[in-house]
Simulated assay, not measured.
Amino acid sequence: MIIGSHLSTAKGFKNMGKVAVAMKANTFQFFTRNPRGGKARKLDEKDIRGLKEIMDENNFGPILAHAPYTLNMCSKTDKTRDFARIAFKDDLERLEKLPCSLYNFHPGSHTGQGVEKGIEQIVEILNETIKEDTTTTILLEAMAGKGTEIGRNFEELKKIIDGVNYKGKMGVCIDTCHIFAAGYDIVNDLDGVLEEFDSIIGLDRLKGIHLNDSMKPFGSNKDRHAPIGEGEIGFDAIVNIVTHPKLKNLPFYLETPNDIEGYKREIEMLRKISQ
């Protein structure tokens, strides 16, 4: 099982690797910069080498870089889109220097422009930035559907991918809390949800899963994560997800409201049920 949690870059990449190993994780997720925006910290080659060594020694799966929440490619505000364009380009350039093959971002909110216009703007920035020699796989995150969010259903994610020139560089990250809140019944009909995903997008594009329970009920369109087994999705449904034959070999990234010890307990619990 490939599983880890979200970790802070505050003490560097090598330290994140050490923390992951200490809690029996074999992957992790990190923000490329402050989640509320701003400049990314300077990369340190020695620090990066240290992380690579830890990953090799401990048979890590793919680690996942997460874009800042403020990266909104489809805002009606030019300044917001300009930040998204600059940060996205900078992140992809930096990831070429890191042992990280996956980059996840929220498609964004169209802020009243409409879904079609929002998707058009997202595709424009993706096509400006993704090149033939880009080695990172860019993941669209499936969203809960609050407000004017884009990515509230598989069809919207598919439309974005369809517009990208280098489609082979694109993938999807499913967040269990998000899609449950968006109205995909992963509790009672996981097989049906996966079949729908496969028919619309293709399971080959599913590259990772944010594993979270949900504080809010099914179809609420509310993005409120809960610890594993303590929310509306429930422990049994989480077990079905991590052991499902079509999902079990994917990397799982915990974003539950926890500290390091809490993540460690969840990882231990999930490893036991996946054996």
Rank of each mutant, 00 (worst) to 15 (best):
N72K: 07
L203F: 10
E196S: 13
N240W: 00
Q29M: 15
D78H: 03
E96H: 11
F60I: 02
I200G: 09
N212Y: 12
K76S: 15
D162A: 13
K39L: 09
N58P: 04
D213I: 01
K158H: 12
T129R: 14
D191G: 11
S75K: 03
H110V: 02
N127E: 13
A40I: 04
G61P: 14
L71D: 08
N58Q: 09
G50S: 08
A67V: 03
L254W: 05
I233N: 03
D198I: 06
A144K: 06
Y69H: 06
G112C: 13
P257A: 08
Q29C: 14
I125H: 14
I238G: 08
R224W: 12
T176F: 13
V21C: 07
P35A: 05
K159A: 13
F60C: 05
E96Y: 04
V187E: 11
K42G: 01
K146I: 00
K117P: 06
L71M: 15
P251I: 00
R49C: 11
D78W: 02
L140N: 04
H6R: 06
H244Q: 02
R41V: 03
I119R: 11
R33I: 02
R85K: 15
P107S: 08
D82P: 02
T70C: 15
G183R: 04
I260G: 05
R41Q: 14
A67K: 10
I130N: 04
D47E: 12
K42M: 14
S75W: 02
A87P: 01
M23E: 06
D198R: 09
K222S: 12
H178P: 07
I174N: 08
T148L: 12
E120D: 15
I201S: 10
I201R: 05
Q29G: 09
D213Q: 11
Q121I: 00
F60R: 02
